[in-house]
Design a protein around this nucleic acid. Sequence first.
DNA 1: TTGTATGCGTTATCAG
DNA 2: CTGATAACGCATACAA
Lengths: 325, 325
Amino acid sequence: MANIKEIARIAGVSVTTVSRVLNNHPYVSDIKRAAVLNTIEQLNYSRNMNAVHLITGRTGAIAVILPYINLYYFSIVMDGLAHEALNAQYRLILCQSNYAAEEELKVLEMLRNKEIDGVVIVSTALQPEVIEEYTDYGPVITCQDSGERRFSSVYIEHYEAFWDGLQYLSSKGYRKIGYCEGRQNGSSASIRQSAFRAFLSERNLPFREEWMVYDCMTEEDGAGVALSLLDMQDRPEVLIITGDHVAAGLIIEARKHGLRIPEDLAVMGFDNQPIGRLLDITTIDNHLYDMGAAAFRIIHEQIRTGSRVPVHRKLDYEIIERGTV
Amino acid sequence: MANIKEIARIAGVSVTTVSRVLNNHPYVSDIKRAAVLNTIEQLNYSRNMNAVHLITGRTGAIAVILPYINLYYFSIVMDGLAHEALNAQYRLILCQSNYAAEEELKVLEMLRNKEIDGVVIVSTALQPEVIEEYTDYGPVITCQDSGERRFSSVYIEHYEAFWDGLQYLSSKGYRKIGYCEGRQNGSSASIRQSAFRAFLSERNLPFREEWMVYDCMTEEDGAGVALSLLDMQDRPEVLIITGDHVAAGLIIEARKHGLRIPEDLAVMGFDNQPIGRLLDITTIDNHLYDMGAAAFRIIHEQIRTGSRVPVHRKLDYEIIERGTV
DNA sequence: TTGTATGCGTTATCAG
DNA sequence: CTGATAACGCATACAA
């Protein structure tokens, strides 16, 4: 495979000139530029980017850590990231970690090894303290509120969003509110849960452990909740459920058994997924695409400018009023 | 940042010895190994992988080209790829191309530039002839049947799968069969379409252009089809629909208007998505996860062995009998 | 078992 | 505008 030296020799110039042509530098005479371009064409030359990466210390790649790419939440964030990356001519390295901290750590090691220019973390397996140990090696951004850290973050206030959602339910006259949460290992789950408890207590609304469901992650889990509600003596009037697909499972199963939504049971979702629109589910849109896009823009800016000052960006959410409340 | 030379100097050994320790080579005395490991620890040393990539000519990364990461089809294939990549300690570079051939070409250029060891194509924007121009630079695999090419492929026979699906419908006594296709730019769409036409003609079943729907990609599109069916004088008895989410949209909307499924209108889906299971949709599972996993294993093997002999692997599909037919 | 010397392919530096 | 030469950090052939 031809290299820059050979191009220089054949074109009758120095390697420096070839390099200048390759990088569109000024100060190359048209005649020499043409000669270089010509031999490049003739030899079907292509740059070995690894040499470029070595000497420049940059790779033009950013790694993304997320647990499962085929879950709605993550695939939408990834969509936002990928869209911006395409614009910025940046490459995205995907690490599907299954929440394995050890795998996520390997990605941070890649940052240390200069294989990548930055890391976007859309997972919760790593402690903030661990992440901070790598901030010297390049910019890192997480997609949740990690407080004042040496890395950046972009997030929505889950506490606030959940509180607002509950307020909305309350304003509709509901008093008996149940709660359906997904995976428990995320910090946002516990934040939402505390918002839930605080709200009930502030408003003097009844809290019942039977109205709380945890680790409810799939459509089928939602359907299971519907079944368990059927037998319940004292049912909640409304359920707030993280993940519209779970809400969808619940609604479909509930209707199958004659439960009217929202008359017999109201439902408020979370995520604003396509299935939610289809089933006319009232939900909270947490702007996942924007989150991914913002994360990329922030980290890209930090790489570009070399700034190590962490940026913390809070995003909006939005209650989507539809028919299940 | 410390480098191998400095480690050698401080540990009192040669750079070769340091390199041997780094790569777990034999023929290093325990005492020197310990000394090296010790200074590595002390200086918080980490390898510059770009130098390794440069000298070895390998990067340990494979690029994946797909149009949209947040569509079920692609996210599942990606899941299979990512799972295997994690096992093999390989990195995956995601290019979300939006079907832009020019972007996909850039990825093939990366192969030429030695930035990656191979390319997995789960898109259809590039012509096979174009892809073949890059097979000298490293292994490439596509996730559709491209015939006898200089690159590998893993695929299901869409013609056969669709034919079998139609046969199944036929065996259930349906004669008036409609067809609902997604994005038209994929070659698999036209293959399925020709299977559809051939089947009807062979069985002497009626073909009606009003029963054909194209570019039907979202849940809402499915719902739209349901509405248009309501007004139709002579409705099909059954609809075969690519994409369970589209089928779901159709079913939900149809039921809203009093259409009974499958009595008034039967539905057969494609993809076997979670929503399909929830709504009890009869469907064809095209084993997308396996496709991703197989694609990775094949290309990884080719990278490992250096073999340039293309592999063509046909995968199974499976009719999932449920309640909408 | 160890070390010396060379090369990987490029960009950066600096002198002209 | 141009070019010679020094980095970049590592792996490896070869010699010892």
